[in-house]
Simulated scan of single mutants.
Amino acid sequence: MNHLTPQQIAELKRMLLEQKKELEDHFKFNGQENSSLGESLEVSTGELTSYDNHPADLGTETFERSRDMAINGTLHSQLDQINAALQRMKDGTYGICIASGKEIPFERLQAIPFTDHHMDYTPDREVSGSRPVEEQVMTLPPRGAGEVRQRNAGKFDDADAWEAVEDYGTSNTPAMAAKRNVKDYDDM
């Protein structure tokens, strides 16, 4: 820790403690110290529609709850990193990259006081390398199909949407048919 002056360490410690207090206050204020959101979706929303015929009514609630859980997970992870940084300060290893042993520049520590990696050794933070499962069942367009069709391979072609849906029936009656003199449903 010899590359950081006592004033720099004091500044960084102050920043870490401020961030820690903000995160702890967030969890305390929201009553989510463990960030698990405790109760079921039905209890938290007060909706009875989870029993009813309207599952779409809870769509927004489900989205909001998932978003809140993701945010809390991220904030909980950040709190863990802050606590680990404060422990490294106590141990005398703060400001040293855990991957390379290089000194982490003060400017980087000012920007991200809980970091434990030198800029050159920061691990990749790829969101996901996996592809949607739907791609396993999608078929490619036939050879020689147009450039746009090749680019949109596997996507539903909305030009034929009505024909695809009409095969399952419509609410039209012979009296409402677009053609004249329709006598029964088979003529439609």
Rank of each mutant, 00 (worst) to 15 (best):
M1S: 10
N2S: 15
H3I: 15
L4G: 04
T5M: 00
P6G: 11
P6F: 08
Q7N: 01
Q8H: 00
I9L: 15
A10Y: 05
L17C: 06
E18M: 07
K21W: 05
E22N: 02
E22W: 03
L23K: 09
E24Y: 13
D25N: 06
H26E: 01
F27K: 00
G31P: 09
G31H: 07
G31K: 08
Q32Y: 07
E33N: 13
S35Y: 07
L37N: 10
G38N: 07
G38K: 04
S40I: 12
L41R: 07
L41I: 13
L41M: 11
V43T: 13
S44R: 12
T45I: 09
G46D: 02
E47C: 11
E47A: 13
Y51Q: 03
D52P: 00
D52Q: 10
N53H: 12
A56V: 05
D57L: 13
L58K: 05
G59D: 07
T60S: 06
E61L: 03
E61W: 01
T62P: 00
T62F: 12
T62K: 15
F63V: 04
S66Q: 08
S66F: 03
R67A: 05
D68P: 00
D68L: 04
M69A: 06
M69H: 02
I71D: 07
G73D: 07
L75C: 04
H76I: 04
H76N: 07
Q78A: 06
L79A: 11
D80R: 10
D80A: 14
Q81P: 00
Q81N: 09
Q81C: 05
I82C: 01
N83M: 15
Q87G: 14
R88C: 15
R88Q: 15
K90H: 07
G92A: 02
T93I: 12
T93G: 13
I96K: 12
I98H: 03
A99E: 08
G101N: 12
K102G: 10
I104Q: 06
P105S: 10
P105A: 13
E107W: 05
L109I: 09
L109P: 06
L109G: 06
Q110S: 03
Q110N: 05
Q110Y: 04
I112A: 10
I112N: 10
I112K: 10
P113E: 00
F114Q: 00
T115Y: 07
H117N: 04
H117M: 03
H117C: 00
H118V: 09
H118P: 08
H118G: 07
D120C: 11
D120S: 14
T122H: 03
D124M: 10
E126G: 12
S128D: 08
S130M: 12
R131P: 02
P132V: 02
E134F: 14
V137F: 15
T139C: 06
T139S: 10
T139W: 04
P141V: 09
P141F: 03
P142S: 05
P142E: 02
G146F: 00
R151A: 15
R151T: 14
N152E: 11
N152I: 04
G154E: 09
G154K: 14
K155I: 01
F156K: 15
A159S: 08
A164D: 02
E166L: 10
Y168K: 03
T170C: 02
T170P: 01
N172I: 05
T173M: 05
P174V: 04
A175R: 12
M176V: 10
M176Q: 11
M176K: 11
A177F: 06
A177L: 05
R180M: 10
V182M: 04
Y185I: 13
D187F: 00
D187E: 05
M188L: 02
